[in-house]
Nucleic acid binder design. Structure first.
Lengths: 120, 120
DNA sequence: ATAAGGTACTTTGTAATGCAAGGTACTGTA
DNA sequence: TACAGTACCTTGCATTACAAAGTACCTTAT
């Protein structure tokens, strides 16, 4: 029956909330310091933006493909070589735009929250 | 060749930034006042959260299917009848969780922005 | 040497969602 | 009766997060 009520999954909502959004924090992280995937994962985790490998690696390839980041191989003392990512000038330009979009989104949502709270 | 650089589309990024996210503002709007689709579209537009019909109607069906909103038909003086949506108790409960997720996301991102700015 | 464990990077298939485009139907007015 | 405006809905596509599994390199212990 199409009327049957389904159970709403908040975890899925959180995941969806990050959809298409992660490029921004990842660019911020790379923009702040040359770094590599496992460290980016760690920083995202510390920021409560949990992400898994299967999400991050394709995302980095995408950023590279768009010329927003670049990388250089670097040897490690404790394992295989690492792809050290750094932001490009193009990446910095896009980052500015994403930051503007974020601020707009941020203020829009916070306004809606205030309206909602005022009505209750 | 797979190395060819593609053009980054900021508009697409904005759209993706809203992906999976829209349930939250729509619930906020319905939670603040009983309303119907075209008015929700108008409010989203005023909040700079541009959305089109093809996005909103399936979203409303979804919220209904999950029992987060309900509707009643209401006749209009200027056209066909309207589905007037209101939030349910379940919807209010979910809204609380989404608000918590949003605040966490908000503070995480703003922290990353600060780190980025400090490093430049 | 070789095995085992850790580190790093990658790929495949699935589910979810925004969007463009097109469609249906009701209402009032010329 | 035609037309324009309003409201609701559906289909197909592109994108992206995630789980899961895989490849490869390096160090350490046996």
């Amino acid at each position: 029956m199409s009327d049957a009520q389904q159970k709403y999954n908040v975890e899925n909502a959180k995941s969806q909330m990050r959809k298409g959004f992660l490029e921004f924090p990842v660019l911020l992280i790379i923009g702040a310091k040359v770094t590599y995937a496992p460290d980016i994962l760690k920083q995202l985790k510390e920021a409560n933006l949990l992400v898994v490998e299967g999400t991050l690696y394709p995302l980095l390839s995408r950023l590279k493909r768009f010329g927003l980041v670049e990388y250089q191989w670097q040897e490690s003392k404790s394992g295989p070589p690492r792809k050290m990512y750094s932001i490009t000038d193009q990446g910095k330009a896009v980052l500015k735009q994403l930051e503007a979009s974020w601020k707009s989104l941020d203020s829009s949502v916070n306004t809606l929250i205030k309206h909602y709270e005022k009505s209750n």
